[in-house]
């Protein structure tokens, strides 16, 4: 696009001068780069720290078969210490399962109501309430599990103890629900109104519009919401510690007490000498958790990407 112009050389120089906007642009570029890099550095740093603490145990002591297949977690046994996580994995999985069974229907229904049916004031209020619920600290949820749901379960189902899979699952489900709701609502809101109008013009009822058009169009966002909820329930510590009963068993019914992976780390780490086998084994659990969460997030990413490329 160069045009032969008889402009003075000074003029051409000025055209290419590095002006203030250019410097500002460069500055912000650098700043953004540093921010982005520091996030990666922090994550990497944490990973290296956890891995360093646990790697010695994993490489030298750990019996892989025992770690994954034995339900016996006896790190302090004087005769022979065993480090099996199967019971904790099963317990965590059971709690997460119940949490999702509670949270997903609840939060998707709430999201659909808020995004598609509620109007004006009602909608604003509901959104505020959801935000408030999301802000309740997990220790408060744990307290609710301990003081409210525990006696409730004992009375209703006539069981000796109400601190169990069901209790922890309920608590985690209620805890994850507001977050899933607000992400799912965003996903529904992102569906263009023209879709709704086109469907309504075809004679679709409000509900038909939702399940024939809006939900399929929002499936990506809804899926990420669900996976984020699973991640949240899986990684939660304080509330499960308080509501699950913290007993080392492979659950066979919702009324069995269990012990979660996260809760084990939280409960035991403070009492183990730094660098001991027990201490390192706890970090090995940490690495295990890290890997699972990573896999959940990765698969979410892949699923979403797969759907996009379709």
């Amino acid at each position: 696009m160069e045009q032969p112009r008889s402009a003075p050389p000074l003029g051409t120089l000025l055209d290419d001068a590095r002006d203030r906007d250019w410097y500002i642009d460069q500055f912000f570029r650098l700043l953004m780069f540093l921010c982005g890099i520091s996030a990666v550095v922090f994550v990497l740093g944490i990973f290296i720290f956890v891995f360093k603490e646990g790697s010695g145990f994993i490489i030298q002591q750990m019996d892989w078969a025992e770690f994954f297949l034995s339900p016996k977690w006896r790190p302090t046994s004087a005769i022979r210490a065993t480090y099996g996580t199967l019971a904790m994995v099963a317990g965590t999985a059971a709690v997460t399962l119940i949490a999702m069974a509670v949270a997903l229907p609840l939060s998707f229904a709430a999201a659909i109501f808020i995004a598609e049916f509620a109007r004006g004031r009602m909608r604003e209020w509901l959104k505020v309430i959801i935000e408030l619920l999301a802000a309740i600290p997990s220790v408060v949820w744990g307290f609710i599990g301990l003081m409210l749901i525990n006696p409730l379960l004992i009375d209703t189902f006539d069981v000796p103890i109400g601190l169990n899979v069901l209790n922890a699952g309920l608590i985690l489900g209620l805890m994850a629900a507001p977050i899933i709701t607000s992400i799912a609502e965003d996903a529904l809101k992102a569906v263009p109104d023209t879709y709704r109008e086109a469907a309504e013009a075809l004679g679709a009822s409000k509900w038909q519009v939702v399940y024939k058009v809006v939900l399929p169009a929002a499936k990506n966002g809804l899926l990420s919401a669900a996976l984020l909820g699973i991640g949240r329930a899986f990684g939660e510590t304080m509330a499960v510690l308080m509501a699950s009963g913290h007993a080392l068993t492979i659950p066979s019914s919702p009324f069995d007490s269990i012990r979660a992976l996260t809760a084990t780390i939280a409960a035991e780490l403070g009492e183990t000498p730094v660098g001991s086998d027990h201490y390192q084994a706890l970090f090995a659990i940490g690495i295990f958790l890290f890997t699972i969460t990573f896999l959940i997030n990765m698969s979410a990413d892949f699923i979403v990407r797969g759907i996009k490329n379709q």
Binding site: T194, Y195, A198, A201, L202, G203, A217
Partner: peptide, 16 residues
């Protein structure tokens, strides 16, 4: 009623 009336919008609204 709407089922008896077809509508075509200014910009094509292809549902996903």
């Amino acid at each position: 009623l709407r089922r008896k009336i077809g509508v075509v919008f200014p910009l094509p609204v292809g549902l996903p």
